[in-house]
Write a protein that binds this DNA or RNA. Structure first.
Lengths: 340, 340
DNA sequence: TTGTAGGCGTTATCAT
DNA sequence: ATGATAACGCCTACAA
């Protein structure tokens, strides 16, 4: 099904001009007669000509394509509404700037390395946006070595990476503060996962708030998420049978909040009157849950647009620099955390 | 930040061979001496050489890239966990076959046409997968004209398109049948939207089941989703104050089911004992909702892999053909539709 | 087994 | 205002 293409030469021949003239018409070059311009345009339409982007890229050394790498997108954790939103943000900004997106969702570390190399050295991509959830992302290290323009979505402690993220420390702090102000003294944090920067930052913010308000830190109230199979339901159930039962629970994601609430009600307790609950991400469903869930809007779309913007700056800049940017998040208080 | 690239000629020079020899080494050509092969390989590593994919594509007339077009991905309707799953399916298959994915999420019809043209004629893409939700998708018509390989995810009535989908008629039928067998006589269908094939098929399946079991079709029980701002909560609320109040409700999506349930309980009724509810798509949360939601697993991942598979067949085949394929869905019965 | 030459489709630099 | 010509980086007959 390889269709023969109509090239600039076909146009040139039929228009009885040279290929360069046609090229100039395409580029809308100023010094070209109106007559030939029109003629060429007509013939281009006639023959249904479209410039070959590949050939153009080769000579221009610019593909107008950026890569987006999402390690483990096929995994459960990415079956999340925030993800398309993020992609939408990247995409809309990219479109506006005339860029296209080469998407790569790999699962193994080996595949990742391979993809990064192709993207970085293959000349097909001018820069890369990497969605990195893990604290020590192997792909990040791979990219740093290459000296290739890239931006990470997700905070990194490596000084050599450009990144965009929410301020997850603040998110954790604000949620804890909200609970404290509601009078809670035993506040649990559900879903801490040491390997992931996001949850680490959030739990640290939570801890700081407790300290600032003079509350004790009880390790038992911080529930770790150790396995992929862990979920809010099971972890919450485990938490409910411990010695210290919290009156407030912060979960690392709305989905976990939903699950935790189910565990609580299954045990005959009520939300928020017996135990208050909050999530993070403000998924569309949060406000329609029963009860509606207190959450934090992270503005994934902006995360995406900002990441693209940053990448473009890096690509176009002559001087090297390391940039980071926080996208503001917004605490949205709903019934699940406010006693009625 | 345009970095100077190391080319095949640099390798050739340093290895004191010709460029073609280097090319042959890269291609693992059989007739090439082990000595030079090793030498070239060593130097390639030394200089960190990576073949330029653009140049290679130009001569090969094959980019190993397919396009994925998602009209309106930035919209609310795509903030859905099924979407990354679909993308994951396409991507994993693509990776396996050595293909990359050029993703395009456009919002306006004009942008769509533009993108399709670039993808189809620009030579950068060998085929396109289009996620089409609307019954009369303008992009589909655009693509048909071009005679360019493409596969649509979502059934189309146009005889000239290749598509992959669930059998939504069967999905609607099975859900209705399930309710009927539970003894329901007034079964509502929430979220019918005439412009969208999916919901049309589902509602038709639902109607057929009612007929087959000798139940009357009440137009009032089919609630149309007219505006983007419509949601399960409001529509359900409206349904509850009509003359005929259903005892069972089929919603077109789990998220709608969640919202509908909230409307029901907000009104002091219970699910499933007063009104039974079911959704479609089996989002991760469905089984953790309170009550757990009866739903239909649509296997979005398989939808994606199958679409890629079909596209590749089309690209490689000499003969023209029109193919369609159904991915089986699976009814999952949970508490929300079974009286306790 | 290796080298030479030509071409993939386009743009940019000189000319004219 | 337009045309030749030489790249861009790679591949592939055809020669040797």
């Amino acid at each position: 099904m390889k269709t023969l293409r109509v090239t600039i030469n076909d146009i040139a021949k039929k228009a009885k001009v040279s290929a360069s003239t046609v090229s100039r018409v395409i580029a809308d070059h100023p010094r070209i007669s109106v007559a030939t311009k029109e003629k060429v345009h007509r013939i281009m339409k006639e023959l249904n000509y479209h410039p070959n982007i590949i050939a153009r890229s080769l000579v221009n050394r610019s593909t107008k394509i950026i890569g987006v790498i999402v390690p483990g997108m096929a995994e459960q954790s990415f079956q999340h509404p925030f993800f398309p939103e993020l992609l939408g943000g990247i995409g809309s900004m990219a479109y506006e700037m005339g860029y296209k997106i080469l998407l790569s969702n790999v699962s193994t570390v080996e595949e990742e390395k391979q993809t990064v190399k192709e993207f970085a050295f293959g000349g097909i991509t001018e820069g890369v946006i990497l969605v990195a959830s893990r604290a020590q992302d192997p792909t990040v290290n791979e990219l740093i070595k290459t000296d290739f323009p890239f931006v990470v979505i997700g905070r990194s402690e490596n000084p050599y990476v450009n990144w965009v993220d929410n301020d997850n420390f603040v998110i954790g702090y604000q949620l804890a503060e909200h609970f404290i102000k509601q009078g809670h003294r035993k506040i649990a944090f559900l879903g801490f996962s040491p390997g992931y920067m996001v949850t680490t930052d959030r739990v640290n913010g939570y801890k700081k708030a407790l300290q600032d308000y003079g509350l004790p830190l009880e390790d038992e109230l911080i529930v770790e998420n150790k396995f992929d199979s862990d979920n809010g339901y099971d972890l919450m159930k485990r938490l409910l049978v411990r010695e210290i039962v919290p009156t407030g629970v912060i979960t690392c994601d709305d989905l976990w909040a939903f699950e935790a609430i189910k565990a609580i009600t299954d045990r005959g307790l009520r939300v928020p009157n017996d135990i208050a609950v909050a999530g993070i991400n403000d998924v569309p469903l949060a406000k329609f849950y029963n009860p509606p869930i207190t959450s934090v809007k992270i503005n994934a779309f902006s995360l995406g647009t900002k990441a693209f913007e940053m990448l473009q700056t890096i690509i176009n800049s002559e001087i090297k620099s390391y940039n980071r940017s926080f996208i503001p998040a917004e605490l949205i208080i709903r019934d699940s955390s406010v006693k009625s």
